[in-house]
């Protein structure tokens, strides 16, 4: 896979960015559009030709030229509706695209579906795509609240934090083939036990963070575009993005002595 990432430059045109949105109608719970919009605008603002391709049920159009896939979360009913289609029509072209160097960001339900399986409270296992070395089990209660993550230094992000909002009951555990996206300074993260949040393996990114994730974490958005296009991007004026990022950091820092006190 590493060789493919380094060696293959045939994917896409350097002047354009194609974003493939997996199930925009059904897997779009609470603000997932913000992630797609952030990638789209940040590419456009740098003069790239940006395009969003909707990958609804049955659609595989243009999956071979997608630079970045986005896979959001859904409510249970919707998640059940996309499941068969994901396995039957998306799994193979998606795996091929990732091998060719495409990037994917998967949030919450999408993150879980990229892993080996999701196990319900009754012990029933639903196999996932197995693209990311993680497994998920139903947890006893929902993890809900603001999250601050100290991001994996290997990713070289500045500022070295991610901010977001989590709302999930699944507990996700990483295998040796994936590294955590970071460690939670605030919030519960992957599983409430090991202090990790999210997972990264090559160009595959999974996370529980909504918020939406990318608008307030523009450095992560740019990392994905740079990985997908194998280029360095010129800087943008991110004062507004970073002010919003910092505002969460400061509020969470101020709350710290209170333990887990909630916003009032």
């Amino acid at each position: 896979m590493a060789a493919a990432i380094l060696g293959d430059v045939s994917r896409g045109d350097p002047e354009s960015l194609t974003i493939g949105w997996l199930y925009p109608e059904l897997m779009n719970i609470y603000g997932d559009r913000g992630n797609v919009l952030t990638l789209y605008q940040r590419a456009r603002w740098r003069g790239l030709q940006a395009e969003v391709v909707d990958l609804d049920k049955g659609a595989t159009r243009a999956m071979d030229r997608v630079d970045i896939f986005f896979f959001g979360g859904g409510q249970d009913r919707e998640q059940a509706l996309v499941y068969d289609d994901l396995i039957e029509t998306k799994a193979v072209p998606l795996a091929r695209a990732l091998e060719e160097g495409a990037v994917i960001l998967a949030i919450c339900g999408g993150y879980q579906l990229l892993g080996h399986y999701y196990q319900t409270a009754e012990g029933q296992r639903f196999p996932g795509l197995g693209l990311l070395d993680v497994r998920t089990e139903a947890g006893p209660r929902r993890c809900i609240g603001d999250v601050v993550v100290d991001v994996d230094p290997e990713l070289g992000l500045t500022p070295p934090t991610l901010v977001g909002f989590e709302n999930h009951s699944g507990r996700t555990f990483l295998g040796s083939g994936a590294r955590p996206l970071g460690r939670v300074r605030r919030g519960r993260g992957n599983n409430e036990e090991d202090g990790t949040e999210g997972a990264v393996a090559n160009n595959i990114f999974g996370s529980y963070l909504h918020g939406s994730l990318l608008p307030k974490n523009p450095h992560l958005a740019d990392l994905m575009i740079e990985r997908a296009k194998r280029c360095r991007l010129p800087r943008l004026d991110d004062r507004l993005e970073l002010a919003a990022h910092r505002w969460i950091l400061e509020r969470e820092a101020a709350r710290r002595p209170l333990g887990d006190a909630r916003a009032r």
């Binding site: 919009l37 609240g145 909002f165 916003a263 009032r264």
Partner: peptide, 15 residues
């Protein structure tokens, strides 16, 4: 606002 009565998650503004 993001108080309890507003919903503490403001992600929805992106919708």
């Amino acid at each position: 606002n993001d108080r309890i009565a507003d919903g503490r998650d403001v992600s929805w503004i992106w919708d």
